[in-house]
């Protein structure tokens, strides 16, 4: 039991996070009433006329709604899986390298892209996968016809997911590195004396030891199941990949800020939140049942 006086520090440390939550997540929430109104900015949110479920009715009539929900889930789910497995494998592999200078250098290099904004990385991707870009030059050297990756509806989600993983895996691996260093070295020493091979030590000691961390990260990332990444998709997409690349957030952007359909845009956004809430609740229950992990 932590003494009360000491626990105070934790509460103080909680304040910035709480403030962030209140100002950026709770406070804007009152805006959802716009989904039930014909929002007129001049009248303000409260005085705009109510129109009931009109916006929702229209939303469900639209073919678009199904497509953008599907695209969002596909992209977000693939990102979630990829962003869990790739950093994990990377951390395990790098952990086996004994040269500290090398591991430090690699770590620093791979987490750098995390700090670049999507506007920059997106621009780089457009260049790299351009018709005359490096990737197509490589393909044509192997005798393959150039491919327009960014106009190819099948390739686009893979490109989005791939570039997101490339950008984030180094940063995501940091937590795994931390978990790896906290494994008691005595276990490895004991195993070595008992004659366990490198591979056996990895399977029997390292992986079981960082499993709880992996489960924790997986559960936490479930909250992002409907966030496919607005800024990334927005800088990379175009009309010919709408069928697989248009996500809820980009659609809401076009409807809300380009065409001023505030009500409809809010309705779609609200539906996203509702689905997100259900998914988080379910996954939390699952995490508790199977991994015995609880937040509350």
């Amino acid at each position: 039991m932590i003494p009360r006086s000491f626990a105070k520090h934790f509460y103080i440390m909680l304040i910035p996070g709480l403030l962030w939550l209140i100002f950026f997540n709770l406070y804007p929430m009152y805006g959802v009433v716009a989904a039930f109104k014909e929002y007129n900015p001049g009248l303000g949110l409260w005085r705009s006329p109510w129109i009931g479920l009109e916006n929702f009715k229209y939303m469900f009539e639209l073919d678009d709604s199904k497509i953008i929900f599907r695209n969002t889930v596909v992209i977000a789910f693939s990102k979630m899986i990829g962003n869990l497995i790739v950093p994990l494998v990377f951390a395990l592999m790098l952990n086996e390298v004994k040269n500290r200078l090398f591991t430090r250098t690699v770590q620093t290099i791979v987490y750098l892209p995390h700090f670049l904004s999507w506007v920059i990385v997106g621009g780089m991707m457009l260049d790299i996968f351009a018709y005359n870009g490096p990737v197509n030059s490589l393909l044509s050297a192997m005798g393959v016809e150039p491919i327009l990756f960014l106009a190819n509806a099948n390739a686009f989600p893979a490109l989005i997911v791939g570039s997101d993983i490339w950008k984030e895996f180094g940063f995501n691996a940091i937590i795994f590195f931390a978990a790896l260093t906290s494994i008691n070295p005595e276990m490895y020493e004991a195993a070595a004396i008992d004659g366990a091979s490198q591979w056996q030590r990895l399977i029997k000691i390292t992986i079981p030891s960082i499993m709880p961390v992996a489960a924790l990260l997986a559960t936490l990332s479930l909250g992002n199941i409907l966030n496919a990444g607005f800024d990334q998709v927005f800088t990379m997409y175009n009309p010919s990949v709408y069928s697989t690349g248009d996500i809820i957030d980009t659609w809401v952007y076009r409807a809300g800020l380009i065409d001023f359909q505030h009500g409809l845009a809010t309705a779609v956004g609200l539906l996203k939140s509702v689905v997100g809430l259900v998914l988080i609740t379910v996954s939390y229950t699952l995490a508790y049942r199977f991994a015995n992990y609880r937040i509350f």
Binding site: D64, A151, A153, S240, Y242, D259, Q261
Partner: peptide, 19 residues
């Protein structure tokens, strides 16, 4: 309009690009 415009943009670009 958002929906109709999307339909148009997507179809036209795909027709031109041959997809």
């Amino acid at each position: 309009w958002t929906n109709l415009k999307k339909l148009e943009d997507e179809t036209f670009l795909k027709i031109i690009m041959g997809s």
